[in-house]
Design a protein around this nucleic acid. Structure first.
Lengths: 345, 345
DNA sequence: AAACAGAACTAAAGCGTTTATGTAGAGGAG
DNA sequence: CTCCTCTACATAAACGCTTTAGTTCTGTTT
């Protein structure tokens, strides 16, 4: 059936050990035997068995990919997809393949992430955060398995994490609006219990304070990151006694909803009201007007994640965390505070 | 270190075989021993070793995911991402995990897909097509490993494939335009050597013929599926002696480019020129005007792929292929042929 | 010439499972 | 009471690789 080391050894007239050593680049093998054995392997189409190798050596060269959220953000989350794309490239280059664990039932336990990791004996894993984290992911954080979290704080001995500096997300938006002359900014946030939304909101409040700007509570709304909630929040804002002239939505989709609401209200973006989103999803630059938004550096995060995980696995570093700077993509949906007045005068 | 069957067996006072049988639900084990052993496994936190199990049984419960294209479409291809998302859910439910092979160097060979599959001993694999297929994927098609191709024709004994019915893609667009009164339709296709683009174009020609409509060669342009090429193609079309009133672009991004070109030319969509795209990417409904486009049923494809692969693995079916019907998403970018004239009169 | 060192290789145990084969004991048929 | 059939287990080999601890041989040193 399968061509094994044993057969190669027999054909080459050497021992299994020698063949194994050739495969693994040991030094104590003669040049000529090496050539002869390699030739036979080539001819016979020898393929090493991953399971046998793993069983014997305990090394898999496999990285587990865990989605920690209760709702399966899966593949189609714009930010995580970009991160993973880069991560896969980098970690692949370093010699690892990726294992995606199914979210469905597993041996004995339903959502036992650690069990999955131990089962496959992964060399390390990457944990994708998000909202509504399942507690059981922290079991692998605490285990000796090296792991890197994206948008989730891992504090284990062999863990590290990466996330966008969400404080800077808010501060860049506030600064941009401030420079455009805006003095009041409305905020459409994510779910109240979302960690990230929380950081952004408190950063927003803090930075506003630094610029000496007030934050009226009626100017703060909560959505769910999706379009409809942005639409509804904006409707409410438009019906406030003094509607805002500048809005910061914590996701692009909510910003889309907000723009829709503004248009329906007979106003123009950005002439009457400026809107800034967050994420820079691909649609952002195609809508009307092209959306000013905050872009997370997903490439850099994916790249760093791969490198950090590699170093963690090889004991080159200890537990670390890094905050990655976001970038403000200035497009057409944000404009000066008084353009309307100026045009009207 | 690791808790093994052996230890469980010793603790329970039974043989390894008995423990193994309990894990694998064999019938010849007494109820009370079963309970006792399960309890001990639970207490000791026993986790089966995948590699040992695989080595002994030859079954991995792992599906390999192969991207067959030379350019790494990776995770962020809108259509394939949706397909994979559904596929992962379904196949996970059936008890399989997913292995993504890195595109980078591998043992001995650079791009030897079959080697990867044999190395990991996958139970089956899913092959993601696209443009510029690497010949070596057909090695696994021809091998006894069950595989399902998405947008790639696999004809092996243990293979099957799924793709959108690209004939219908063209025919639905032509029919829609025909019903709106259009009699001439311009076509902006993909790369000349792209299989899928080719099917769509010849289907376009054929269906146009069925409706008795002419296809002037100057109304057929080739792009590369990206925005810029759609923009350039449209520019050319606009400068034709008789510019078209209806355009079918073989990708949404090219449609975006075309719309941009039309706007810059001082014309309106759809009043002056109608545009239809293909893919229904998320941005399509957000642009101005919302794009009429053809949607591939990625959920259905992912779902079917999982089921077919499962049946192939378990010898419930033989080689099969299915064409999945696309859906025309009618939005605002396509309108009646003579609206301009009507409005002008 | 004896002793030794290093290079090139081998033997065999071990990794954690599965599984074919074997067997002890209980119960039923004759 | 013996023989047979089940049931409920046990034994041990096998899976394909790695790795430790040798072993053999060649060449150098004293």
């Amino acid at each position: 059936m399968r061509i094994t080391i044993k057969e190669i050894a027999k054909l080459a007239g050497v021992s299994q050990a020698t063949v194994s050593k050739i495969i693994n680049n040991y030094q104590d093998v003669g040049e000529d035997t090496k050539k002869r054995v390699l030739k036979i392997m080539e001819e016979k189409g020898y393929r090493p068995s991953h399971s046998a190798k793993t069983l014997a050596s305990k090394v898999t060269n496999v990285i587990g990919v865990l989605y920690a959220g209760k709702v399966n953000v899966g593949f189609n989350h714009p930010f995580f997809v970009d991160v993973m794309d880069m991560f896969k490239k980098k970690i692949g280059y370093l010699g690892y393949d990726l294992m995606f664990f199914s979210n469905e039932k597993f041996f004995l336990d339903e959502e036992d992430y650690l069990a999955r990791c131990l089962h496959y004996n992964v060399d390390g894993c990457i944990i994708i955060g998000g909202e509504d984290i399942q507690e059981s992911v922290y079991d692998v954080d605490k285990s000796p398995i090296p792991c890197i979290g994206i948008d989730i704080k891992l504090t284990g001995e062999q863990s590290g994490y990466l996330m966008t500096d969400n404080y800077k997300v808010s501060s860049k938006v506030v600064e941009h609006y401030y420079l455009l002359g805006h003095r009041e900014i409305a905020y459409i946030g994510g779910k109240k219990d979302s960690v990230i939304a929380d950081i952004r909101l408190s950063a927003f409040r803090e930075v506003m304070g630094q610029y000496g700007l007030p934050v009226r509570e009626e100017m703060v709304k909560y959505g769910d990151f999706f379009e409809g909630s942005g639409y509804r929040a904006m409707k409410e804002l438009l019906h406030a006694p003094v509607p805002p002239k500048a809005v910061f939505a914590a996701s692009d989709l909510m910003a889309f909803g907000a723009i829709q609401a503004i248009k329906e209200h007979g106003l123009k973006v950005p002439d009457d009201i400026s809107v800034i989103g967050c994420d820079d999803i691909s649609a952002a630059k195609h809508i009307d007007p092209p959306l000013t938004t905050v872009r997370q550096d997903s490439e850099r995060i994916g790249n760093l994640a791969a490198r950090m995980l590699f170093d963690l696995i090889n004991h080159r570093i200890n537990s670390t965390s890094v905050m990655v700077e976001p970038e403000l993509m200035v497009r057409k949906s944000s404009g000066p505070a008084y353009s309307q007045t100026l045009m009207g005068s």
